[in-house]
Simulated assay, not measured.
Amino acid sequence: MVHPAPPSRRSVLRSGAALAALALLDGCSSSSDSGEEPGSTAAGSATATGAAPAVRAMPAESGPHTRTFMAWPALEEVWGDQLPGVRQDIAGLAQAVAGFEPVVLMARPDQADQARQACGSSVEVLDLMVDDLWARDTGPTFVTGPQGLTGIDLNFNGWGNKQTHTNDSQVARTLLDHYGIPRVQAPITGEGGGIEVDGDGTLMATESSWVNDNRNPGKTREQIEAAFKELFGVEKVLWFKGVAGQDITDCHIDALARFADPGTVVLHRPAADTPPDIWTTASDQALQVLRTATDAKGRSLRIVELHEPDATLIEGHGKDFLATYLNYYVVNGGVIVPRFGDQVADDRAAAVLADLHPGRKVTQVSINHIAAGGGGIHCATQQQPAIRS
């Protein structure tokens, strides 16, 4: 598995203004300046004071979407001379998603016209202050319940204070306010890319990105799991060890294991002949967990291995490059899949994902500039589930 050495994925500010990373553990700060208690429901919620909390559920990504949220990368000090290419990739990705469902791209007011010109009329651009493009992590994570749609604010803190996030820490709140969607502030800190659900009661996560003092100091795995169950309405959590301190996310689950449907997990595997390292070990450990695990409904799991491309065939491959097909995105009627330039591996991954999502059109998108920053398609998108009336 080709992965960066620290600091990596979405590299810390080159200007020297980066925040110092906190101490990391193997295996989490629910702080906020909002004035609200973590776990509280923001104004506008229908939850009555003193009433029992409504049962929430996080729909599977494969369910119907109202729209997809994305963000326009804002800071040259983060991306340096990669910024034009990254913006080109984001525009292409937004257009691809817009072929299946509405896209709302958040952009700073002084950059919104540039984003509109790059993306075209098929993409709605929303003036909103952002720092970077990672809408999966900075935006709200949506759940449903008896009172409709709610956004969970996971208190984004720059992946453990590794990158500037003055504006991105407010994206979830601001976006939910704009659409009039009730907001719940989580009692834990993390990112949307750090969880994966099957929509049928099971959630997957890595310990390295949650049970970590840079996000949730003093909290145990059991406490974080209890929060997952309350926030996302899941019954069972499958934990993987992950890798702490080697990429900016501390090994998010959405680059390691994904649910294709309840009972089926797609697992990232190294390319052939990859020498053993911490990343191959993480994949091997996840494989062992999945082989013996059952989901919330007691099903044994079908494991589909998806191998990464040959790094020598990828243009622009470097130390920060995230070469995984696991970071795909399921949209209404389609699946958006990365294309890296290894034609054999690209086509094989597209075929596997087409088989796993029958009836959906697979669209391959070149994202090598985004991947060079250590991210992917899933990292750059966040779905708003459609609520059936």
Results as ranks from 00 to 15, higher is better:
Glu230Trp: 00
Ile195Gln: 07
Gln114His: 14
Val103Asn: 07
Pro187Asp: 12
Ala98Tyr: 06
Thr220Gly: 06
Lys241Cys: 08
Leu175Ala: 11
Ala172Pro: 01
Asp137Ala: 04
Pro217His: 11
Ala205Val: 13
Val197Trp: 05
Lys162Asn: 11
Gln111Val: 13
Lys219Gly: 02
Asn214Trp: 12
Leu176Asp: 08
Pro140Arg: 01
Leu154His: 00
Val104Leu: 14
Val125Thr: 15
Trp239Cys: 09
Ser169Pro: 05
Trp159Met: 03
Gly145Pro: 05
Glu230Met: 04
Val123Phe: 04
Gln117Ser: 15
Ser209Val: 04
Val234Glu: 07
Gln163Thr: 13
Asp131Ala: 14
Asp113Ile: 12
Asp110Ala: 13
Val143Tyr: 01
Arg215Phe: 00
Arg173Glu: 08
Lys219Ala: 10
Val234Asn: 03
Gly158Arg: 06
Thr202Gly: 09
Ser122Trp: 08
Pro187Met: 03
Leu126Gln: 14
Leu176Ser: 04
Lys219Pro: 00
Asn167His: 12
Leu126Asp: 11
Val184Ile: 13
Gly218Gln: 08
Leu149Arg: 06
Gly158Met: 04
Phe232Asp: 05
Phe240Gln: 05
Thr138Ala: 10
Leu231Ala: 04
Asn155Glu: 03
Pro140Ala: 03
Thr189Phe: 00
Met129Asn: 11
Ala107Asn: 15
Ala98Pro: 06
Ser122Gly: 08
Val125Gln: 08
Met106Asn: 09
Lys219Asn: 05
Asp168Lys: 05
Gln111Asn: 14
Val211Cys: 13
Val197Phe: 01
Asp168Asn: 06
Val103Pro: 05
Arg108Gly: 13
Gly120Phe: 13
Gly218Arg: 13
Thr202His: 13
Ala172Leu: 05
Leu126Val: 12
Asn214Gly: 10
Trp159Gln: 00
Asp168Phe: 03
Gln170Asp: 09
Ile181Glu: 01
Asn214Met: 11
Pro109Arg: 11
Gly199Ile: 12
Asp200Pro: 02
Glu225Lys: 02
Leu126Lys: 10
Ser169Cys: 06
Lys241Leu: 07
Arg215Gly: 04
Pro182Ile: 03
Pro146Val: 13
Gly201Met: 06
Val211Arg: 02
Phe232Arg: 04
Val234Leu: 03
Gln185Asn: 10
Leu238Phe: 03
Ala118Gln: 14
Pro140Ser: 00
Val237Lys: 07
Leu149Cys: 02
Trp210Leu: 11
Ser208Tyr: 13
Glu191Asn: 01
Glu222Cys: 02
